[in-house]
Design a protein around this nucleic acid. Structure first.
Lengths: 352, 352
DNA sequence: CTGTTAGCGCTTTCAT
DNA sequence: ATGAAAGCGCTAACAG
């Protein structure tokens, strides 16, 4: 009485079949549902300890792994998150991604990465199909641009999502860093050294973090009685280089310079070097991106170290909260944030 | 006669249900299987053109998206790949990851990223559970370490996989770059400039790319009549720094230096600067990692630009081939590879 | 304490 | 040219 295998289900050729719940059940001689309960720890309706043991033993022996697809289909939960990141090379995103991946793994989720092209960016809602298709339970949106229109994205209205390191058009779904705090650290440092004029070289104003740094700089400089000059340029080496070039052509620079991204730092340094402007002799420099390599440059660069991994982790937590149906509020990650003093910021020249 | 909804299936609270195949079917007044056939283009048993139109229209109108979970469960295909990458900050991996993500998207796969801790690394087979659970159809293994034992990983034997940028213990599943070609570019450049002695500062010898570069350097230097010194150090700024420090303490350096990673480049440059060894006056330097920032340093760094995005794309293709059941052979990505001459490599000092 | 049953949403063979 | 039916592997409400 060999059971005939149903002919209409094709096996993936050559691969040996995975162990299923029913295999465990029939080996132990219980019903599949019992196995399911035991393996999921649903012992509310309690199961005989002996049966539990036998099931656990069998499952372990055969290396049983539940089929995530079947489980997800039944539970209406994919156990996956989608992380939408801008397509840039920058250590910032690596650290953010890492923090998110680690926390997601801890919480039993896998993470799919989608890279958003920097030119011709799609609206965040363009990724909601992943949730509609049940591939993911929610979206981590880390695309950098501020929304022009500021009206909530229709396609996202029914999809759990969180904006990471940028604010979105809707309230209560942002997880961002304390950029104002970073500016405070920067201004406190250079003001303490005696600087009176500040220059911020940063990325395009459409980038939300850039916008927040610019606003904070203007406001805080006003409060502290410092003059503030703000220049936006592409977040590249060439962008930083050109920005300083242009400013130097117009006159002397403010003595304290903050730079938004590490790429720009390299460009800024090159332009200052070309013009023989000494760092930190003539101008002081502080980077808002931290990377170890900055400590090994000709002039080691003082920088602000932001809690990027913590940001990623917090974003995952916030998203899971929303997936679980609980609402949430905007999250501001403040700690740990520090200024790594390396010597590129010193007192202003005495003549100034 | 309102149909009672089955009470035992809980809806995800507050979220509106996705459109299903049956919804389209009942709206159009046909059987779900017909809709399935039409939407999948299985018109082998031909369907009336009018019906096709109505189904397509309805699906479009309601924004129908097939449930990827249900489809995957039925088809025994998750439509997902897992990319296992080492946990390092380095532009190399960003470019590799990008190439892989883009190609996977083109081919209709989503990609999950798993980061492998650098210290206490797990064997690649530790990720095969993702395939067993049907979360992914195959594994892209980009962990950097060479396997000590060199015996095939048991847990991977039934799992489609490809080793990326490293060779694995089994034959025919590697997709790697032409490191020997990179060395050839390097040696050709410096030999052409007149150098006779070469120093390679690279990462730990357990890293497969490092190993291949070291072997190629020894072999090619012998063939060209160049002396070769090879030093392994951690792939960090501090590692590069310390390596040069130690060598300088022991005597003069070979006049041509190749450096394995960008982090080490920064360390090497700092150590040379500290010791007042001029670049390219006293020693020439070439980096095996390319990054735009290298063009903006004090001394712009000549580097080898490897086809990393192409590597990622080729790895995805190779993996999908294996998932589809076809075997495969090792792949060597040679092009496009170039030496970006920036000035850190020049003729050796005349005294030497 | 455990088994029965009814699906999750989709695909596919078979029958008409 | 289309419908019926079965089932991917798992879970959960309900019934003993």
């Amino acid at each position: 009485m060999t059971e005939r295998a149903p002919r209409h289900v094709r096996e993936p050729a050559g691969r040996n079949r995975a162990v299923r719940l029913v295999d465990i059940a029939s080996a132990v001689g219980v019903h599949p549902s019992t196995v399911s309960r035991v393996l999921n720890g649903h012992l509310g309706h309690s199961v005989r300890p002996e049966t539990v043991e036998r099931i656990l033993a069998e499952a372990r022996a055969r290396g049983y792994r539940p089929n995530a697809l079947a489980r997800a289909l039944r539970r209406h939960r994919a156990g996956a998150l989608t992380f939408v990141v801008p397509m840039v090379r920058n250590p910032t995103w690596v650290r953010l991604q890492r923090g998110a991946l680690l926390r997601a793994a801890e919480r039993g989720y896998v993470v799919m990465i989608m890279e958003e092209p920097t030119e011709d960016p799609k609206p965040p809602g363009a990724y909601s199909y992943l949730v509609t298709e049940s591939r993911a339970d929610g979206l981590l949106l880390a695309t950098a641009l501020r929304t022009g229109g500021a009206q909530p994205d229709e396609a996202l209205s029914t999809v759990p999502h969180v904006y990471v390191n940028r604010r979105g058009p809707d309230q209560g779904d942002d997880v961002v860093l304390d950029e104002a705090g970073a500016i405070r650290l920067f201004l406190g440092h250079v003001a303490g050294l005696g600087h009176c004029g500040v220059l911020l070289i940063d990325g395009p104003r459409e980038v939300d973090t850039v916008h927040r740094r610019a606003v904070a700089t203007r406001r805080q400089c006003a409060a502290l009685g410092l003059t503030a000059v703000i220049r936006h340029a592409p977040a590249t080496e060439a962008g930083g280089f050109a920005a300083i070039r242009r400013l130097l052509a117009a006159g002397p620079l403010p003595t304290a310079i903050g730079v938004g991204s590490i790429e720009q730092v390299f460009g800024v340094l090159a332009a200052l070097r070309d013009a023989r402007v000494a760092v930190p002799g003539a101008v002081s420099l502080v980077s808002f991106d931290e990377d170890e390599s900055l400590g090994y440059l000709d002039v080691p660069i003082t920088s602000i170290c932001m809690p990027l991994a913590e940001l990623g982790a917090a974003a995952v937590d916030a998203l899971i909260t929303r997936i679980d149906g609980a609402g949430g509020t905007d999250v501001l990650i403040r700690e740990p944030m520090s200024l790594v003093a390396r010597g590129s910021a010193g007192p202003p020249p005495t003549g100034s």
